[in-house]
């Protein structure tokens, strides 16, 4: 399974759905599962059904059709929101339905947070921005999407998915806030904890 996604992915290789200890919150958080599917019609839908049926709110599906797993199947990465309790139910339901769950949840990083930055991201050295976020103890940069439709001279936007240690989302956001201020970038923070 060679997959560019893993390169920027700070998650520990944990194949277990066990939650991060002591964080049984009723607040939904974002979870990522990696599935492998047989390349046949209807397989993707069948895999998503248990997520929806068990109270998961689908956020994104990354269907890596160009890639194959070592078993010749197609890797699919699914992001969804669910409480920790429902998340466990979802993983169990997926496995019951015969879907191969390659990776679910994380040990090291319990919380995910997505945020947007806009402004002169390229002029202010985006890779430096990312490595300084990465250097912060609380969080790791899991995913970056950049949109610079007007070229490098005009304002551009970036979406960052950070993975934060349990209970440290606020500290991670504070670090990004400080960095954005220093580089005169605008930060669009998520409304954390109220995403009902």
């Amino acid at each position: 399974m060679s997959d560019a996604h893993d390169g920027v992915d700070g998650r520990a290789d944990d194949d277990d759905a066990s939650p991060d200890g002591g964080h049984a919150s009723a607040t939904p958080s974002t979870h990522t599962v990696r599935l492998e599917l047989v390349d046949e019609p209807g397989q993707l839908l069948a895999a998503l059904q248990p997520i929806a049926d068990n109270g998961g709110n689908l956020l994104s599906i990354y269907h890596e059709r160009g890639n194959k797993t070592p078993r010749g199947r197609i890797p699919v990465e699914v992001d969804f929101e669910a409480t920790q309790e429902r998340f466990e139910g979802i993983v169990e339901a997926l496995r019951t339905e015969g879907v191969n769950v390659m990776q679910a949840g994380t040990e090291r990083y319990a919380e995910e947070v997505t945020l947007l930055l806009f402004g002169h991201l390229i002029d202010t050295d985006l890779s430096d921005t990312l490595s300084r976020i990465e250097a912060c103890e609380s969080a790791s940069v899991a995913d970056v999407s950049l949109a610079a439709p007007q070229g490098t001279e005009e304002a551009s936007s970036a979406r960052l998915r950070l993975e934060a240690r349990a209970g440290e989302t606020e500290a991670a956001l504070a670090a990004v806030r400080e960095l954005a201020e220093e580089k005169e970038l605008r930060l669009v923070e998520p409304l954390t904890g109220v995403e009902a």
Partner: peptide
């Protein structure tokens, strides 16, 4: 100042 690209992302 919010650019269209921010909303697209």
């Amino acid at each position: 100042d919010v650019p269209g690209s921010t909303l697209r992302l």
